[in-house]
């Protein structure tokens, strides 16, 4: 399993549109499983409801973990997507 700690820089937090794009991205890597965790909870990044329920705000610390195939590449893709969310 590969993991990386990140900080969300999107000024208005993780909202539905970027969340839904993240879900699409993650689903494309199936069956590799991507999880997003905060200090309290860990959710499957393929579930938009779960992602939104984290209530991630600007400045929230999160950890991306990838398990399955191609872990390094998937982690890279997911991490750079999360870091690129600017809306």
């Amino acid at each position: 399993m590969e993991t990386r700690k990140l900080v969300l820089n999107a000024p208005t937090g993780l909202h539905a549109r970027p969340a839904s794009e993240l879900v699409k991205l993650v689903k494309g890597f199936a069956p590799t499983v991507v999880r997003i965790s905060t200090a309290e909870r860990s959710v499957n990044a393929a579930s938009m409801l779960s992602l939104l329920s984290l209530g991630l705000k600007c400045g929230s610390e999160l950890e991306v973990s990838v398990e399955g195939g191609d872990e390094q590449a998937v982690l890279e893709a997911v991490a750079s997507f999360v870091e690129s969310i600017k809306e």
């Binding site: 208005t12 937090g13 909202h15 539905a16 409801l49 939104l52 329920s53 209530g55 705000k57």
Partner: peptide, 21 residues
């Protein structure tokens, strides 16, 4: 349970997603 999850997010935009659910 899903609605309450959204209603308790401290963010007006996400709170409103409870209506979609």
């Amino acid at each position: 349970s899903i609605v309450s999850m959204f209603e308790h997010i401290d963010d007006e935009y996400l709170k409103a997603r409870a209506d979609d659910v």
